[in-house]
Design a protein around this nucleic acid. Structure first.
Length: 466
RNA sequence: GGUGCGGUAGCCAAGUGGUUAGGCACUGGAUUGCAAAUCCAUGAACAUCGGUUCGAAUCCGAUCCGCACCUCCA
């Protein structure tokens, strides 16, 4: 089987074949750290996490770069408003970003370059564009990229110049540019930038947004690399401009594959800061939901489709996760103290193939989850009938671990049973032996207060975290 | 105007010519002191209209509706 991914450039599914045959180098557009990211933003990071995990599942190595945009209009404006140096202001949100990634069980990328640490690389890249005739300086001192010089401009977004001319939003103020669609490589200093300024051969100023990603990706991954990802809103202009800059400068193909995820929507509308219909992760966690429930939510739809966010979905996820946890706990108990894995039981023999078959098809997560739940059902049935040996259970546990390396949601957090809870459970067992049902039920309620449900099974009472 | 994505049961969400997707919720039963969990059983769907076909959720055409991008955006 081969992992096939949808390439926005070709608009078809293509087999993933890393350029060097072994290692997948991927670049993912990261956050602008002027504020807390909202969970719509995390949908993209979640998609990228699933992608990198599945690439590894397929046996490739991964080197992932995710940039931190720590200089732009918004970060500058906000830092000046708060009277903080830019670096100090953005640090708070960079820390929060990493904190949120951890809560969502998103694997760290190999590199997190901050734009302000790569200014020399950006300047070098712009110089190269000057040499090759793609860049020009306007009267106000800013440097622009001339899209007319790059014949393939528009190849990713499939936009032609005519369509753009009649576009709904052509900025009338951009009088300094040769063409309204030319974009800034270097922005000349203006007083509103405060002390956020660097020297360059074209005068003082700061880099444009698009050049940041081109400079950092090529510095860390090479002039040609494998996968570039982002949200669909990055296709144009951001990724189109990255291609124009990078390929014009190097004369080589930039990224081999382009992958874009759909939006998180609320009541049919894209979740966004400007619409105000967003929630930050910390807000949702404060409401009592777990990072794991949010992860399940963000994972539960195909990455290219828009995904509907609703709190009642999170509630439904809680129930689904409980079902998964119940199975995991039972299979673990069925394994006893056995450490050696035997053959997989017949009901789990095809699980891995079904899971991988779905994931191979451009990460069909719904098909993959169906393979999981089908196995849960068949396994519950087998365990109900007590036809699962300890060695078989051990093998299933191992399989679960292997699949969870991709999903990151199957392993429930370990919960310690406190002495108080253990004592209550013991007291309840005594009460039940004496058929003192009133006392037994009272203790069960008390355990529920402490966050535990108790199930009475033929093998004795079992505790489960609520 | 240009370019894309979509409309599947109460809700979420796969499927792209024939065979139960899956999850949550609901209903009946088994089990249980009562529960919980689990199992068994059951119900429910392809926006509308036409066409192609032995057969269409799937292909073709038209229509209606929703969303997004077209220089801040994951």
């Amino acid at each position: 089987m081969a992992f096939r991914i949808y390439n926005t450039m070709s608009r078809t599914k293509e087999e993933l074949r890393p350029i060097d045959g072994r290692q997948v180098r991927m670049y993912t557009c990261g956050p602008t750290v002027y504020n807390y990211a909202h969970i719509g933003n995390f949908r993209a990071y979640m998609f990228e996490d699933l992608l990198r995990r599945y690439i590894k599942f397929c046996g490739f190595e991964v080197v992932q770069v995710q940039n931190l945009t720590d200089v732009d209009d918004k970060t500058i404006r906000a830092s000046i408003e708060q009277g903080l140096p830019l670096k100090e202001y953005t640090k708070k949100y960079i820390d929060a970003f990493f904190d949120d990634l951890a809560k969502l069980n998103i694997e760290p990328a190999e590199h997190y370059p901050a734009a302000t640490d790569y200014i020399p690389e950006m300047i070098t890249l712009i110089e190269k564009l000057f040499e090759k005739g793609y860049a020009y300086q306007s009267a106000d001192g800013s440097v622009y990229y001339s899209i007319d010089k790059f014949a393939e401009y528009g190849k990713l977004a499939h936009l032609d110049r005519e369509g753009m001319q009649s576009g709904a939003r052509v900025d009338q103020d951009e009088y300094d540019k040769d063409n309204a669609a030319d974009f800034a490589l270097w922005k000349a200093y203006v007083p509103e930038d405060g002390d956020v300024v660097w020297d360059s051969p074209w005068g003082r100023g700061r880099p444009g947004w698009h050049i940041e990603c081109s400079a950092m990706s090529m510095k860390l991954l090479g002039e040609s690399f494998d996968i570039h990802t982002g949200g669909v809103d990055n296709i144009f202009p951001h990724h189109e401009d990255e291609i124009a800059q990078s390929e014009a400068a190097t004369g080589k193909p930039y990224s081999k594959y382009w992958m874009h995820c759909g939006y998180l929507v609320v009541d049919g509308k894209k979740m966004s800061k400007s619409l105000g219909n967003f929630h930050t992760l910390r807000e949702v966690l404060d409401m009592g939901y777990s990072g794991r429930e949010v992860r399940y939510e963000l994972l539960s739809g195909h990455y290219r489709q828009s995904l509907n966010f609703a709190f009642k979905s999170l509630d439904a996820n809680r129930a689904a996760l409980k079902r998964l946890d119940e199975f995991s706990a039972n299979i673990k108990e069925a394994g006893g103290s056995e450490t050696e894995a035997g053959e997989l039981p017949e009901w789990a023999a095809n699980t891995r193939a079904k899971f991988a078959g779905a994931m191979d098809d451009d990460m069909n997560i719904s098909g993959a989850m169906a393979a999981i739940f089908d196995t849960v059902h068949a396994g519950n049935k087998a365990m109900t009938e007590s036809v699962v040996s300890e060695k078989q259970a051990r093998a299933v546990s191992n399989l679960w671990g292997e699949l969870d390396a991709v999903l990151g949601i199957l392993e429930a957090p370990e919960e310690e049973v406190s002495a108080e809870v253990a004592a209550l459970l013991e007291a309840r067992t005594v009460a039940r032996t004496e058929k003192n049902w009133a006392e037994s039920d009272r203790i069960r309620d008390a355990l529920a207060e402490l966050g535990w449900t108790v199930k009475d099974t033929p093998e004795g009472p079992k505790l489960r975290k609520i």
